[in-house]
Design a protein around this nucleic acid. Structure first.
Lengths: 180, 180, 180, 180
DNA sequence: GATTAAACGAGACGGTACGTCGGGTCTTGAA
DNA sequence: TTCAAGACCCGACGTACCGTCTCGTTTAATC
């Protein structure tokens, strides 16, 4: 049943948005009684978090092409697409709305994991000598991914492949610059 | 009366957070009847937006030291401080929560304005020859500011001056790199 | 609106009984929103008490025929009829179910008032010399009315006029008996 | 196990009252799983009735002193004490709350039995010539016991031995009065 | 001694009702 | 006109309790 409900939640998030995704609606859509949902997830926020992160974790694979830039382009292309989807939007919204009520540790942990996995691309780049040893993989990844997030959700600017590429080049060039 | 209510709103946002800032609570705190608030602002979101953006506009001056890096360090130091404050948090949260219910044009416009003003620092840098002409001020600014936003609100990582400086250097180095 | 809701409550009590008289059902029947009911009465028990006692107060007039026995026969005839009605049943049930949750002071006060008014019949009898001065009006009234209540609600035995009369005679004879 | 659960039920009735005596609570207190309780008793009301009547049956012995009045004083003294106890209260409350949901035949039968046993005192009085042959034992017993019940549970008035005695005298005098 | 029926522990679920909270509308009366 | 006051509508959230069902396990009586 857990899967039925989570699936229904995702469906509703996509079709109705964050606002319209009410516990009652989810229960109805899943053919389950409302109380059963509350029993298992306790609060709406837990339910949403569960649904959204479940689907997000499998979403974005980390490529390994042998060249940092290519890795990043592939990876952040996928990220951009995900963020542009209703589900991606929702995931970020939930994360930003965090504030007691759900154990935001989970959210924070999720983002950390997500970041860590991405950083491996940069670490490999350092190992291969494409990037200087002083490179801070976290900072680099953050600069790129944050821009995507903000662009999609805050400023609403377009986010095509070209923009992603330019962003990657900008930051990667910065990382490549020799530093004292 | 408008100012009384907005001030009360800001107070509540700071002390109680976004959740706790209810129209009723604001009215009570301002010594005004709830209906009066609805009369003027129509919806809660309008009220919040009004209160938050009023205070934000005056917040961050754009420096002009004569050197891009110094300008950015000063500017984003202030930005970081603002984002770390309860009010800053709230402003971003409201912006991310956008989705029917308030005319998000206003929010988008606000962010655009904010960005534009910051970009002038970079344009001056280009004029002074500190940065190549191909520099995309928008992209640069976005990379830096987005990182700050995400760091404060999403990952919850620390945000001291050193981090801000390293971030600026990273992106600025990227911008300085000659490009074909 | 208060009257609309109370009337609907009484109707439901009569037709559906105590169990079936749900706040939601009352609201629906009265064409009023459930929250409005809760706003005014706070709890279901308050609502029921209000409805039932309102209707009960007007129900039973105290006669004054000039002879105690006749007064009592008329009075308790009416009481018996009321107790046999669904509404009467409910009134007693509510009273017995009392136990924190509603301010049972109200119920107790109501019963006291009810009793006091009945006792005047006996006091007039004493004044007229029909009953000895030592007569305890409260005790006499209690003996009669309690029997009616218990008969109707607890043992479910029939309660026709003859039984009421025999009960009155029994107690009245006891009261008339000279005592040292 | 039956006894364990019933004992726990009685304990809870005494300590928490009718409201607080939930099937879950009983199960917990008895160290038994909720389902097991439902398996055996089917409904909460059955459980309560079972627990309460079990304890009530053994409670009040019928004395035989050789004089009606003494018998009644002893008997109703005990009745009064029982009714004043939490368990007594509860027994009456349950009985009055009857209305589909439990087979109220059982309750009615229980009260009838109780009454019948008490009436033997009066029948012996008639046989001994203390009371006229026309005496209606049922009516007499009812007048006394009902007053006690109502006093304890409805009006909440005090119920000491003196009151009980005066009540008995009142009704007994009535019974002794010669009648055409 | 193996088997099998009855009883129990465990846990999820359906269902009904209660009560709460917050957003938003409307009416009335007074300044 | 504006505002205070207060009632109301509406929809959602979360909680409590009743009762049912399924599964696995123990226990006990029977063959």
């Amino acid at each position: 049943m857990r899967r039925t409900v989570l699936a229904a939640t995702v469906d509703l998030l996509v079709s109705e948005g964050l606002q319209g995704t009410t516990v009652g609606a989810v229960a109805r859509a899943a053919g389950v009684h409302e109380t059963s949902v509350y029993r298992r997830w306790k609060t709406r926020e837990n339910l949403l978090a569960d649904a959204v992160f479940e689907h997000a974790n499998e979403a974005i694979p980390v490529p390994d092409t042998g060249r940092v830039r290519d890795d990043l382009v592939v990876f952040f292309g996928a990220v951009a697409r995900f963020l542009s989807s209703p589900l991606g939007r929702t995931l970020v919204q939930i994360s930003f709305a965090q504030q007691d009520g759900l154990d935001d540790d989970r959210i924070r942990a999720d983002w950390t994991t997500r970041m860590d996995r991405g950083e491996s691309m940069l670490r490999r780049g350092v190992e291969r000598g494409e990037l200087p040893v002083q490179t801070d993989p976290h900072l680099v990844l953050e600069a790129i991914s944050s821009s995507l997030i903000v662009r999609v959700l805050l400023t609403g600017e377009p986010l095509d492949e070209a923009v992603v590429a330019r962003l990657i080049d900008l930051v990667l060039d910065g990382a490549r610059t020799p530093r004292s």
